[in-house]
Amino acid sequence: MENVVECINLTHYYGKKMVYENLNFNIKRGSILGLLGKNGAGKTTTINIINGFLTPKSGKCMILGEDSRYLSSKTKAQIGYLIEGHVQYAFMNIYQIEKFYSGFFPNWKREAYFDLMAKLKVTPKQKISTMSCGQRSQVALGLILAQDPELLVLDDFTLGLDPGYRRLFIDYLRDYAKETNKTIFTTSHIIQDMERLIDDCMIMDYNRVLAYMPVKKFLNEFKEYTIELENPDIEVELEKPIVNLEKMHNKLEIYTYASPEEIKGYLDAKGLAYKNFQEVEMSLEDAFIGLTGKY
């Protein structure tokens, strides 16, 4: 399967502050990759590089076979871009903005846009600036659907959406992408509901990638175990096979890719007395917090 996005050895710094070094990832046609990370982890930087708004210190991104720094008009027409916060030309109303964008895209699908707009309770002359965040998200989504691009680049689209709109956005997007074999690259720091959308996840912390694999594999392999320590004052070291630890009083949460037997063996080898060893089922959000930490 061909790669729609191919990022090779991306390295970027803001002044002396490293964002990441040698970041590699690719997105196959028809798949949905979620770049998940806390605020400041480098998500928008990556989006800016992909869209050609930022030149990386080194490395490059190939988008539909073209270097992202020199995207042709033809390739840009194949990339649907949603800015963080569903930013659009807020001084227009829904008819004006459709009229504006339709002038740039020969294969513009106005029905797709107006089908979605029909569901919004907005007046014909209402400016986008006076709409709720949820309504604005639908306008931005409708415009992307009308553009009908090969690749959708969505920057933190969940930001500001209430649970209903978030679910609506995700379900609409997922159905559309799978029915039409579209490729999606999305970033988010709100992980709730993301497992409904993405096929692969790349979880980033400051300066590094913590996990990059299919979501199902990640949820199958990444585990949380809880134990109660006999001695609450004891310090447990963060070392292999443990990926992360969260300790509250005598309760210890252990995040790892290891099996229960391996962890029990490790705890025994360290001479830690404990009780109530339990494996906890995790959602993607739980796993994300487990991997990146609460702080």
């Binding site: 990339i79 030309y89 807020a90």
Partner: peptide, 18 residues
């Protein structure tokens, strides 16, 4: 000014033209 509010200029620069 409306182009730089929320960095909307990105939308303009992303349009399929030079």
């Amino acid at each position: 000014v409306p182009e730089i509010v929320d960095k909307r200029i990105k939308l303009t620069l992303h349009l399929p033209t030079n």
